[in-house]
Amino acid sequence: MSNHLDRLARRVEEDPFFLACYLKLYAQSEGLGEEMLATVLGCSQETLVRLRLCRAPEADAEQFQKDIDQIVERFRVHPDVLAQVVRRGHAILQMRGSAPKGILLAARDVERERRDGQAGDQS
């Protein structure tokens, strides 16, 4: 893994355009270090660098899930944890007044649809 990639991944940690920003906020809120964050996501630390450089999922519910799926498919991380990372990051950013609008609603819609789907499967 290139040190340059690691440096770039660190640089974009403050930029909500990149997943790096959400991963950092999630790790801080959970008190997780690098290693633990990778473990929770189910990936190596090298993959974590690549994950940071992904674009953050889009705001609208449908696109949010599609983006999560694409990232999961590419990097084989735990989908629920990743969705939680993005939701948590957005919540923190929104509290700070710097989150892209609509993302929390989108994340909630996805969550609700998933729960409804599970309930439907059980009945």
Binding site: S2, L5, L8, L51, R52, C54, Q63, D67, F75
Partner: peptide
């Protein structure tokens, strides 16, 4: 096309080369 992983792959391919 909005693939969220494309930026990561592009950085992996081009960053070292550009530097």
């Amino acid at each position: 096309e909005g693939d969220p992983t494309a930026s990561s792959d592009l950085a992996g391919v081009f960053l070292d080369h550009l530097i």
